[in-house]
Design a protein around this nucleic acid. Structure first.
Length: 491
RNA sequence: GGCGGCGUAGCCAAGUGGCCAAGGCGGGGGUCUGCAAAACCCCUAUUCAGCGGUUCGAAUCCGCUCGCCGCCUCCA
């Protein structure tokens, strides 16, 4: 399979050492709710991992939490809680959001604050080799000592220095030198070190964690494109200077989520949280929205786009319903091959999704023809799962009370039309059931559906249609099939 | 100033030298249905921002022009 490598700027043949793939994905700084940009990135790397596993690789996935930095300290101070408390709160929130959108958990989630000894060891090693220097309790990386500094982001030191926004740090030898260790100010969280009390710089934790949990050379290191510079560039500088080995075989970066004309970012304050999205759309719809475009390209957030994705995923859900035993091994093999071919080409999930829609059409076609569909349906389920789609039926909550009101309304209308019909439509047992509002809404919906069927048999179509439209207003759709009427929640 | 990306049907979007330019949403027609819904069938880009060039052949390669965006500062 081919995978695009940011380092080379081309697609390369993906050949890990053995059957194991070591994958490190940059995690979050837990100081705020997860937004859909995070969702996009982690959905993408979730699919990459799921596909590698589908291909038979054993993936070891490590993802960090940067649980100490300026933003955490500032936010914690503003809320008058400890940095630890704040980080723990948002780490819990991170897991809740990601679990909700069916992201597989990494095997290890190291915390920056729990890797201090490893970090200090690396900083000491870099000092010893002359790649770093101390300046007043801070330790900086000496970028001029690394001749290929800039190789990931494809820039040169001279160009960067020429840029307007580079400000020389007080004790820095070179404006692009970056902190490995920062001395702490009074009142800030602090860890003892050979250079005095302080805390790690932003980039060093990833070098320490990946080295400890995955070894000197990673197969895949991923994150958003916004991390290419300076974060990942600096990680390379640190890690390779320390170990003398190549740090990463494949650098993978996802495109960024855009909000209309501008990007979504914390500083612009135009964030949409995962929680907000899930109030309106299903996790599958969010996934389909993300996977509909290429992972390296930008994605523009839009409610209309998510609505389209919701309708689309509903087609896949419908294809999973019903069906008869039987298979079509040729067709199954064709789809499996098509799916694999496009995913082998740098995880072209958009093409894979296209294959799933065609597969769904073939399933529905066979259903119409009365042919066996179970084989194709289990394939759709399997390939959908590789993309992290659950294809679960929509489950929404309904207002039981409003359904009961509809029952009462319909009953009075039926009896005003024909007393005898009323008795027939709502049998005594039905009416007894309706006197107990503690019963779930399903009971009443079923009651209405049954009554509607009887009304239709009696050619009372106006009343039957009132039941249908009444339920529709309450978020429930009816479908009359040869096997009878089924109801479902509206998408 | 440096680096990188984008511009494909009403909308989203795949496609990087050659079968009819994926797929989704939307729209139109039809089948089914008491009517619907869902599903299925057919239609919805002779054309890929514009202009030149390379080639037997380009949306795909090269050049220029126009428009848009990201990174270079915390960010997935």
């Amino acid at each position: 399979m081919k995978v695009y490598n940011t380092l080379s700027g081309t697609k390369e043949e993906f050949l890990p050492d053995g059957s194991q793939v070591n994958m490190y994905v940059c995690g979050v700084t837990p100081y705020a709710d997860c937004h859909i940009g995070h969702a996009m990135s982690y959905i993408i790397f979730d699919v990459i991992r799921r596909y590698l596993e589908f291909k038979g690789y054993r993936v070891r996935h490590v993802q960090n939490f940067t649980d100490i930095d300026d933003k955490i300290i500032n936010r914690a101070n503003a809320l008058s809680i400890s940095a630890r408390e704040l980080a723990d709160r948002y780490i819990a929130q991170y897991f809740a959001s990601m679990d909700a959108i069916n992201i597989q958990r990494a095997h290890v989630y190291p915390y920056a604050t729990q890797e201090i000894p490893q970090i200090i060891e690396i900083v000491q090693g870099l000092l010893k080799k002359g790649y770093a220097y101390e300046a007043g309790g801070d330790v900086y990386f000496r970028v001029t000592k690394k001749p290929d500094y800039g190789k990931l982001s494809h820039r040169h030191l001279e160009d960067m220095v020429a840029g307007a926004r580079v400000e020389p740090g007080s004790g820095k030898e070179h404006p692009m030198d970056f902190a490995l260790w920062k001395s702490s100010k009074p009142g800030e969280p602090s860890w003892p070190s050979p250079w005095g009390g302080g805390r790690p710089g932003w980039h060093i934790e990833c070098s320490a964690m990946s080295l400890r949990y995955l070894g000197e050379t990673l197969d895949i290191h991923g994150g958003g494109q916004d991390l290419i510079f300076p974060h990942h560039e600096n990680e390379i500088a640190q890690s390779e200077s320390f170990t003398g080995k190549p740090f990463v075989r494949f650098w993978m970066h996802n495109g960024l989520l855009q909000m209309g004309e501008e990007k979504m970012s914390k500083s612009l304050g135009n964030l949409v949280t995962v929680e907000e999205i899930l109030r309106k759309f299903t996790p599958d719809a969010l996934r389909l929205f993300v996977l509909g475009s290429h992972y390296r390209g930008p994605l523009t957030f839009s409610e209309a786009g998510l609505e389209a994705a919701e309708r689309g995923v509903d087609r896949l859900r419908v294809a999973m319903e019903g069906g008869a035993p039987g298979g079509d091994s040729d067709l199954e093999a064709t789809y499996r091959r098509r799916f694999t071919e496009v995913m082998d080409d740098d995880f072209n999930a958009a093409q894979a999704v296209g294959a799933l829609f065609d597969l769904a059409r073939d399933i529905n076609r066979k259903k119409e023809q009365g042919l066996g569909t179970k084989g194709l349906q289990s394939l759709l389920k399997e390939l959908g799962a590789v993309l992290g789609l659950t294809l679960k039926k929509l489950e929404k909550s309904v207002d039981t009370q409003s359904i009961i009101e509809l029952v009462a309304e319909i009953r009075s209308k039926v009896s005003s039309v024909d007393q005898g019909l009323a008795l027939e439509v709502f049998s005594p047992g039905d009416i007894v059931a309706s006197k107990f509002p503690t019963t779930g809404a399903e009971t009443y919906i079923d009651l209405l559906v049954t009554s509607r069927t009887r009304l239709r048999k009696a050619k009372q179509f106006a009343l039957a249609d009132e039941i249908r439209s009444g339920l529709a207003q309450r978020g429930i759709t009816l479908e009359d099939t040869p096997q009878g009427t089924v109801w479902k929640f509206k998408g």
